[in-house]
Nucleic acid binder design. Structure first.
Length: 216
DNA sequence: TGCCAGGCCCTCTTTAGGGCCTT
């Protein structure tokens, strides 16, 4: 008999929630990271944070300056991507990562890792794919919309890495709590959420009900 | 020369196209 997904060891409420600000959308086109923000969750509590600007060695566009509020002047005095990313990898270890539209942050993490000859061995989990299933009635699934939709506390700062990571962490914990309450899980594993985030929307209820029963 | 992300997901689908998300 297989181990129920909900009970496997890596728990979804003990992860690092990550957000990057970058020079653009694609590391394959030369874009780099300019800020990292991360929140460590342990058993559903925020226990640590990591934040730093980083100098990508290339100027950022006026669009990105306006979009993030991060200026070329601010980055001129920032430590290098290499220095910051080495520090972050020491912070992260092999802990699983949650990010909003995780494929984006994963691409940038992998790109920056390759530049410093380091490797990340954990899993990426996407809060956006999860929200599309848990909050199917939301107007859309942008981070800012979901924060307003669920009345998540915030300081009105968006598109800065730590602020976005903190809001994503609260959104994440809120989704886990709603799943637990509605389906009677004691805990929710990373594996269960990863399967949920690939489940067709119309089958979400059936999937969670089945996993909940399996747990008994 | 001109263009250039990429993965997911829905539908007027699967021999495809386009919107959503991230900066």
């Amino acid at each position: 008999m297989s181990i129920p997904l909900a009970l496997s060891t890596r728990q979804a409420d003990s992860v690092v929630v990550l957000d990057f600000e970058t020079t653009g959308l694609s590391p394959n086109l030369g874009d780099r990271t300019i800020e990292i923000g991360a929140v460590r969750l342990k058993n559903g509590q925020i226990t640590d944070k990591f934040q730093s600007l980083m100098n990508p060695g290339i100027p950022i566009s006026s669009f990105i300056e306006s979009f993030t509020g991060i200026s070329n002047e601010m980055l001129a005095d920032a430590p290098s991507c290499k220095e910051v990313m080495n520090g972050f990898m020491n912070f992260l270890g092999e802990t699983d990562v949650v990010a909003h539209n995780a494929s984006f942050d994963r691409r940038f993490l992998e790109s920056e890792m390759s530049l410093i000859q380091r490797e990340y061995r954990g899993e990426f989990i996407c809060s956006m794919l999860t929200a599309r299933r848990v909050y199917q009635d939301a107007p859309n699934h942008r981070l800012g919309t979901l924060v307003a939709y669920k009345n998540i506390s915030n300081e009105g700062v968006f598109h800065r890495a730590l602020a976005d990571a903190e809001m994503t962490a609260l959104l994440w914990l809120g989704m886990l709590a709603e799943i637990k309450d509605e389906y009677g899980f004691d805990g929710i594993s990373v594996e269960l959420v990863r399967k949920l985030s690939r489940t067709p929307k119309k089958k979400v209820d059936k999937f969670l009900t089945k996993q909940s029963v399996k747990r008994e």
